[in-house]
């Protein structure tokens, strides 16, 4: 089965802001219909279909309930692939951060406080980006224009980069 459009599968319009309790209701209702447990006594062909449909349902739910995954999905559908450009304004700071991480790995514990400060800074940046995204999502939903998607694409790239950094620092600080 070719994967159908996730929004359509849930009977929803393609929007970046979604009413999550409503999505959950739909998910539970569809699960009751499609889950293999509901078709265990059926013919093999129907069991096969149920397995396929239920896998798509779960994949779709996982994608749509997470705002970032949802936006990535919609962008990909609209032909906006992830860019290979890192946000230039962050690079110097990222470089210094990596140097500090290397020193920490080398056994220099004194850089811990520097790393903790960096983590706080990047977490704040992440929040800032998220707030910005929320605004962009709302704007797109009010008037879905491709131009708005370009801006969202850039913001998501930035977000991805920052969240990778946070994870990296996190795992070094609390291995």
């Amino acid at each position: 089965m070719d994967a159908p459009d996730y929004f359509q599968f849930f009977g929803l319009e393609a929007r970046l802001s979604i009413d999550l309790p409503d999505l959950e209701n739909r998910f539970y209702r569809l699960s009751r219909q499609l889950h293999p447990d509901r078709h265990a006594q059926a013919a093999p062909s129907e069991r096969e279909r149920s397995l396929e449909a239920s896998a798509i349902l779960n994949d779709a739910y996982r994608t749509l309930r997470d705002p970032v995954a949802r936006a990535e999905y919609l962008l990909k559908q609209q032909g906006f692939e992830q860019s290979k450009q890192a946000p230039a304004e962050l690079l110097d700071e990222v470089f210094d951060l990596n140097l500090a991480l290397e020193e920490l790995r080398g056994g220099d514990v004194s850089v811990r406080s520097r790393l903790e400060a960096a983590r706080e800074r990047f977490l704040a940046l992440l929040q800032e980006t998220d707030a910005g995204l929320e605004g962009l999502f709302g704007a797109y939903d009010r008037s879905p224009a491709p131009a708005a998607l370009g801006e969202i694409r850039a913001a998501l790239n930035r977000r991805k980069y920052i969240s990778n950094l946070v994870q990296q620092v996190e795992s070094e600080l609390n291995p």
Partner: peptide, 15 residues
Amino acid sequence: MMNTAVRTALKGTKV
């Protein structure tokens, strides 16, 4: 049948 099931499940949900 499976497609009908999807439609039935969505019937009555507010869109």
